[in-house]
Amino acid sequence: MAITAENLGKHFGDVEAVKSLSFHIEHGELFGFIGPDGAGKTTLFRMLTTLMLPDTGSASVLGLDVVREYKNLRNRLGYMPGRFSLYQDLSVEENLRFFATIFNTTIEENYHLIRDIYIQIEPFKKRRAGQLSGGMKQKLALCCALIHKPDVLFLDEPTTGVDAVSRKEFWEMLKDLKAQGITIVVSTPYMDEASLCDRVALIQKGTILNINTPEAIVAEYGKPLFAVKSARMYELLGALRGFSFAHSVYPFGEFVHYTDSRAEAQPEEITAYLAGQGFTDAEAHSIKANIEDSFMALMESPSGQEIP
């Protein structure tokens, strides 16, 4: 097992940031913690990377206890924090050399690990890190986290605020690293990135809602789900919520996702109801849930976000 956590918890004042989490991650896995801001992802990562002491429970990474054996562990893990934390006034090359040196290695020794990523920023190696674009900063941070050849890599929200194309490129890089045998633990608020992981934990308010392969999580979606469409989308939301069998109604790109409260339902029933409400153009078809549908179903209810 690459990572094990038993009842791992952390609170700040009255806020329980991480609530007694237990999970394990296998060697060589690409594992995702998927959840919104405030879910506890960063606190969890800080505990697993030995940067913060847990209040309760324990965790080990690569068989090393995160509290007692932190010194050994730090040599074997790589961590890319959510906030850019390289030296802004050192150049690209200087940053990389610095991180190699503090881990008693050289850029040359582990160059093969970062080569594919580093060649993309090499033309700017004399530029100060603070003057790089967001995408280049991210690539440099990844190189710095990899230069000591870690066995496990923690990436805290590497794609937040990054455009859709750069996000795809970043996941390609992660796939290549996984192929080299590195265990990768990544957190993200983007639900669509779940399908790129071997297994995911859906996390919200310090609690794991579900942990499994993305395929297994969506297969557990319990209710009939339909994609519904009309030219008048905003009005369609209200109309569907007025349907007596409606369980949940959410806008979902060009469709509205409608969940029926019954065990079985037919799309024709929905379109017939909508036609009666003046939506003669409405179309509905049965669909399989995706991770975001599952996440929302697991979030108890919209009142799950009430004021504490």
């Binding site: 919104p36 929302m296 979030m299």
Partner: peptide
């Protein structure tokens, strides 16, 4: 809506 949960 960056970082906001899917329902919100």
């Amino acid at each position: 809506t960056g970082g906001v949960d899917p329902i919100t």
